[in-house]
């Protein structure tokens, strides 16, 4: 399918809403914004089956008997979103061959970073390697929020989570964040991208469209802030996302058929401190004597940014 080259922001918002209100996500939750944004990228005439790993989104968006989805939806377990949607896609191929299903159906599954980076990592990797025609979307809020903000392999270094709390001896999470987008790109799937909620959503929308309408297994990593877990006032979400991008903590890029492309390069890369300062989970980094933490965080961001630039320019 040839995708349009221009982005008509207002037209995208006139499309029928596919993620209904009345779900039980917290006020200001980034996951809801991610789901709406991704589903908006579907052609209105196409049907979809939405998959979901267990997590905040699942318990909030299909609390019996209330589904928030206009489309069909399947949740099986925490670690099985990739495999379950593989099965749905396989069924589609079989039933289409037999003439039992005639129209176009797209397959999109959502998982938090717990269900994607960690417990569902194998199932995701399997689905990507087998090349099912589906899109896996990680809404990355950098901890296990549903069970109460425990650390995940996506939690950034120094962030205080309930199983990596900052204390007088331990400075929050000890390890760096896993670079999952790179790992999925290493599966040599046709489309992988990293995005978040920026400006008029052009980045998320166009990436979601590419992901959904590129044949084969595709992956989107969407940074989706959690006001409760990150400890910031809910209304500050757009500013958090903007700073994540402007500091290069969360660079926007895509990998299309093996070609790395930077989606946005900040004119002036802001110091990571500005991003960290807004969030209570990094509060301890600003205590006197802990300056080394901010320096270390900056160094890590710089290194990752340089590596990414090399891939995109190389």
């Amino acid at each position: 399918m040839e995708l349009e080259r221009t982005y008509h922001f207002k037209k995208t918002l006139e499309k029928k809403e596919r993620f209904a209100p009345g779900h039980r996500l917290c006020a200001g939750c980034g996951a809801g914004i991610a789901v709406r944004g991704v589903l908006r990228a579907l052609n209105e005439e196409d049907r979809a089956v939405i998959g979901n790993a267990t997590g905040c989104l699942e318990v909030s968006s299909f609390l019996y008997p209330y589904t928030a989805y206009e489309d069909s939806y399947i949740h099986t377990a925490f670690e099985s979103a990739g495999a379950s949607l593989s099965g749905v896609e396989a069924a589609y191929n079989a039933l289409k061959r037999k003439g039992k299903v005639k129209d176009t159906v797209k397959f999109i599954t959502f998982g938090g970073d717990g269900g994607t980076y960690d417990i569902g990592f194998q199932s995701l990797s399997g689905a990507m390697e087998r090349g099912h025609d589906l899109t896996y979307v990680c809404y990355d809020n950098e901890a296990y929020m549903n069970t109460g903000i425990q650390r995940s392999s996506s939690t950034p270094r120094f962030a205080s989570a309930t199983t990596s709390p900052a204390g007088s001896v331990v400075p929050g999470k000890k390890q760096n964040k896993k670079n999952l987008t790179d790992i999925i790109a290493a599966h040599n799937v046709p489309y992988v991208a990293q995005t978040t909620f920026i400006g008029n959503f052009r980045d998320l929308y166009t990436k979601a469209r590419k992901a959904i309408y590129t044949p084969g297994a595709t992956f989107l990593n969407v940074m989706a802030p959690c006001p409760r877990g990150w400890e910031y006032p809910a209304e500050m979400l757009p500013e958090i996302c903007r700073l994540a991008v402007e500091t290069c903590v969360w660079p926007l890029f895509e990998v299309e058929n093996g070609v790395w492309r930077l989606s946005y390069e900040p004119k002036k890369k802001l110091p990571v401190e500005e991003y960290l300062r807004m969030q209570g989970r990094f509060r301890h980094m600003f205590k006197p004597g802990n300056e080394w933490m901010i320096e270390a965080a900056q160094k890590s961001v710089d290194e990752n940014w340089e590596k990414l630039l090399a891939k995109c320019l190389g």
């Binding site: 209904a20 209100p21 009345g22 779900h23 039980r24 968006s61 299909f62 019996y64 008997p65 209330y66 589904t67 928030a68 989805y69 206009e70 489309d71």
Partner: peptide, 15 residues
């Protein structure tokens, strides 16, 4: 099995 075979029933919930 807790299946729901109608769309977007969450609209019924007064959040």
């Amino acid at each position: 099995g807790g299946e729901i075979y109608e769309p977007a029933t969450s609209k019924l919930v007064n959040t």
